[in-house]
Design a protein around this nucleic acid. Structure first.
Length: 433
RNA sequence: GCAGGGGUUCCCGAGUGGCCAAAGGGAUCAGACUGUAAAUCUGACGCGCAAGCUUCGGUGGUUCGAAUCCACCCCCCUGCACCA
């Protein structure tokens, strides 16, 4: 059996990963032996995004410390919708869609935890398996009776919805907490699961579960929440203008993923290293100290991008991301071979083929249509500032209507590749058809 | 059902007959400075290369002219009433 790392909670603490926990000291003692814990992920999309990364990685930290993780995919709760700290009632997804998402999340979650490591091997469970078969009357009599509406409406997580002038909260969403509480009680009963972890927005749901388990089974179980990831500038973590950063490489390429982390602000990057990597706290402190002492560009963002990309997309994904990054930001296009250019597109550099019709469009339309920018106006602005480079050559507003000319085969690398750079960070590879 | 309040460009939020593609803030994009950072400053920010075109819940109407006025409709909120 795996040796239990008695220092786990201290490490989590040092990483800033503990927002709240039930039974403070008792949990320390409790975790001196190998325990079973769970964390839930609701299928609200066909992929998880980096918002779920902290709980996911924490599950892994527990497993590495010798505990047994259960990853719960919310096939049932996903049909209801968690109202916690949500401003508005959400629209329901159809059961077949949720079911298909459940399958995707199961596969995704499975990559982070080990299913074959003896006693602490992980298990994936789906709460539809037990909630789906409970009758309404049984549920109301056996579970509902343990919940006091008076207490439920006091929960911070739904308070704003209840007090709200605008949208209120439906009975459906209000019930969510009871379902999640029931999950914990069930997992205790059938898997001897005694700890639930989750984002700090889950506190109300988690304590609901510890209470219910005590009432139904007379057992003490624990809850621990992880901090909400915030950015120093106050904007939402995990979103860029081009959208959410997904874990699915088909939705967010490893290159885009790598770039996301590489662009972390100095004020956030050391915190992110503690949250999102398995580097030791000591190692991270050392990096921080070195960066503080050195002038110029810190090494932290590079380390962060490398570690997290490897964690999510593996060595290959990381290699692809680094390849593209070094080609695109070194500025030396001549270093690239023909096969290099071909590979870049496969590696996830945005790319497209240029047809004759494309060459008839103004640059503004062309670059907007291929997704580089949202509207032609941005291209116009960039052209006016010499911020559009085609194969390294700056283009101006007068070139806007000369698409065929600037994308002429004679100017293309190897007669067919044209690399467009807009601003500092946007690159797109065109291949002449 | 009755009474009252409200629906404005990605978000918040001004605007109550022409000077409105619509203040201000946020977000976002680009430039300068840098380090593919932050802060700051500059520009852009409905669509369009442009001429121009399309917007202020919906549909009609009044008017030379409507986001602004009128009618009807839809949706949301708050009270009150009512019924299973």
């Amino acid at each position: 059996m795996t040796a239990v790392d008695h220092n786990l909670l201290n490490d989590l603490q040092a990483r800033g990963l503990i927002a709240q926990m039930t039974g403070d000291d008792q949990l320390y003692t409790w975790l001196q032996e190998s325990r079973t814990l769970y964390c839930g992920f609701d299928p609200t999309a066909d992929s998880l995004h980096i918002g779920s990364l902290v709980p996911l990685l924490t599950l892994r930290r527990f497993q590495q410390a010798g505990h047994k993780p259960l990853a719960l995919v919310g096939g049932a709760t996903g049909l209801i919708g968690d109202p916690s700290f949500k401003a508005q009632e959400r629209k329901l997804n159809t059961p077949d869609i949720v079911a298909s998402w459940v399958e995707k999340l199961k596969a995704q979650v499975s990559r982070f935890i080990d299913f074959d490591c003896g006693e602490s091997s992980a298990t994936v469970v789906n709460n539809l398996d037990w909630i789906g078969s409970v009758s309404v009357l049984d549920f109301l009599r056996d579970v509902g009776k343990h919940f006091s509406i008076n207490n439920m409406i006091q929960k911070e997580s739904v308070k704003q919805r209840i007090d709200r002038e605008g949208d209120g909260i439906s009975f459906t969403e209000f019930t969510y907490m009871i379902l999640q509480s029931y999950d914990f009680a069930e997992l205790y009963k059938h898997h001897n699961c005694t700890l639930q972890i989750g984002g700090s927005d889950q506190w109300g749901n988690i304590t609901g579960g510890t209470d219910l388990t005590r009432r139904l089974h007379g057992a003490q179980v624990f809850g621990l929440t992880l901090p909400l990831v915030t950015k120093s500038d106050g904007t939402k973590f995990g979103k860029t203008e081009s959208g959410t950063i997904w874990l699915d490489p088909a939705k967010t390429s490893p290159y885009a993923f790598y770039q996301f982390w590489l662009n972390s602000a100095d004020a956030d990057v050391y915190k992110f290293l503690r949250y999102f990597t398995f580097l030791s706290v000591g190692e991270i402190d050392r990096i921080e100290a070195e960066d503080k002492g050195a002038s110029g560009r810190p090494q932290a963002q590079g380390v962060l991008a490398k570690e997290v990309t490897r964690l999510i997309h593996g060595e290959e994904g990381l290699y692809a991301a680094e390849r593209i990054t070094s080609s695109m930001f070194s500025g030396e296009l001549s270093d690239l071979s023909e096969s290099d250019l071909q590979q870049l597109a496969l590696d996830g550099l945005p790319s497209s083929r240029l047809t004759k019709e494309d060459l008839a469009k103004p640059l503004t339309s062309l670059l907007a249509d291929c997704g580089m920018v949202k509207a032609g106006r941005e291209v116009k602005d960039a052209l006016g500032r010499n911020a559009v480079l085609i194969n390294g050559e700056a283009k101006g507003p007068e070139d806007n209507m000369k698409t065929a000319e600037v994308f002429a085969a004679e100017k293309a690398l190897f007669g067919r590749f044209l690399l467009v750079k807009l601003g500092k960070k946007k690159n797109h590879l065109f291949e002449l058809a």
